[in-house]
Design a protein around this nucleic acid. Structure first.
Lengths: 227, 227
DNA sequence: ACCTGAACACCGTTCAAGT
DNA sequence: ACCTGAACACCGTTCAAGT
């Protein structure tokens, strides 16, 4: 009744191991990912993985990169023919959000792993994306310095909102006994309002506020500008 | 040449263990914290800790709570006599920032640990702080629902900005070889601008934007209002 | 060339036994 | 009452040995 080995000789390589790790974390959670379990999942002993991956930490780096790179294959996002910077940022933001929600167990890793360079900010931690964003923003008329400010601010916005949204959804703990809210009258009264939100609408509203802020950095444009 | 046991019989308790864990993580990093090392740090075998703490996960929960509670002992923050809601939020934000910078290895834990209740958002993950914030905002004239919106938005702002700031500072990896930036001309050109920022000034600017957004939710007030 | 067995140093955790 | 020794089931990782 044992599983047939999923990996006959020579089938293993780094890419396959990493994508298996992504699938494993999505299904079972990060804390369950061990070299032995991932090996078993691939029909192989844990030690075999070390021929393709330097170690567990490097594997997790690979997982983060792989998920971030998903964005590049998202046709909704990576249209070179975007309708202006705001459209570009909006698509990008929603793309990152989709990625985060598709991999709620991996997004905290994306958020907290030290980036490759000190000037790379999660969750847009790929050189290609940074370059692309800077290109669009300078193309829209922003100075290089201002484009960098936009990158930083936008990263912070995405990180905060999506980490909250993901962590709230991933919550598997038992809810707190309502009785313990004695002494916190407002908390008690507003619990429904506190529980609500953190859906697309909240996201879009905060996104719009970001875009408005950025628009104010741009050189004034004539009415009816198409961006 | 062994250390004298730091903990003669009966000196151990949950609070001491947790604060030792905080100190240990601050000094050596989260990934080095093991039950055995923490025990040794306290002059005791690992197994002794289990009499006071249910396990490692619970210990980390305790660490998070302890650091969050530091805010309550911060005299700069917890002045009941604040000069209006904006002053209150500003002090709170700077207090959270101080906490994050004081414990850069713990803040990611604060950010990503599942909160006790689904409506609790990091980093303001203490019932006392939520109640206090709601109290101030409703006192300023906001409806309950709007006060909840402020709590959510403010949490997202703090989370995003401080996680970035902390992770950038905590970066110990080797910088990337500049040569690899071929193909990314803007990145290359703007590297200084990208590296900059994420200091108090960036924080204060983003904080002000948040406060402005909140101000727009408030009922209009006469000129010269003191908040 | 690619995988595994055996081994090493370490985990978290339990529990009977010591003081 | 409080701590420890010994044990268990598991880690990540190395390396010589097998195919």
């Amino acid at each position: 009744m044992r599983d047939r080995p999923a990996s006959p000789r020579g089938t293993l390589d780094a890419a396959r191991i990493i994508s298996a790790a992504v699938a494993f974390i999505d299904e079972h959670g990060l804390h369950r990912l061990t070299m032995q379990r991932l090996g078993a999942h691939l029909g192989v002993e844990a030690m075999a993985l070390y021929r393709y991956v330097p170690g567990r930490e490097a594997l997790l780096d690979g997982v983060v990169d792989a998920v971030v790179d998903e964005l590049f294959r998202d046709p909704e996002v990576h249209l070179r023919a975007h309708a202006g910077w705001a459209d570009y940022l909006r698509r990008l933001a929603h793309g990152v959000r989709r990625t985060a929600l598709a991999h709620p167990e991996i997004f905290p890793l994306i958020a907290t792993r030290p980036p490759a360079a000190p000037w790379v900010r999660p969750p847009l931690r790929s050189l290609r994306w940074i370059e692309s964003l800077l290109e669009v923003m300078t193309g829209a008329g922003l100075s290089g310095a201002d484009a960098a400010v936009v990158y930083r601010g936008f990263s912070g916005f995405l990180l905060g909102h999506l980490l909250l949204e993901v962590s709230v959804r991933g919550d598997r703990r038992a809810g707190p006994p309502a009785a313990d809210l004695a002494g916190y009258p407002l908390l008690r009264r507003l619990r429904p309002q506190l529980s609500a939100g953190l859906g697309v609408r909240d996201f879009e509203e905060a996104l719009q506020a970001q875009l408005d802020r950025i628009a104010r950095m741009l050189p004034p444009q004539g009415p009816g500008s198409r961006g």
